[in-house]
Amino acid sequence: MNYYESKDLARFAEVGKFRKELMDKFFDYYGEATGTDGALTKREKALIGLAIAHFKQCPYCIEAYTSQCLENGSNPDQMTEAIHVASSLAAGMILVHGVQMQNVLMKHDAM
């Protein structure tokens, strides 16, 4: 058995079997935030979603947002740039902690 099954994505709503009202609020919020054109277009939102899906490495979201990006008119060049944004932020988040490292190095009079 795999922990992640593609077909399970279609069962997402079943999480609302208990405390359905909370899940309903989530779906309303999610649909409004991601599925409508606002100050950002649905295409831009889908690219943000794809980048976050990769950052959080969620297989469900990667599958869903790859389709979302295609169905909102993005192409592989644009989608790949989006995940490079996520990737470079992740790298930056590691590297900026180098300042913490240097603070400690200085504390130990080691730099």
Binding site: T41, R43, S67, L70, E71, N72, G73
Partner: peptide, 11 residues
Amino acid sequence: GAFLPASQVGL
């Protein structure tokens, strides 16, 4: 491929 077309106006 196996996906729906994007908005006609946007494309």
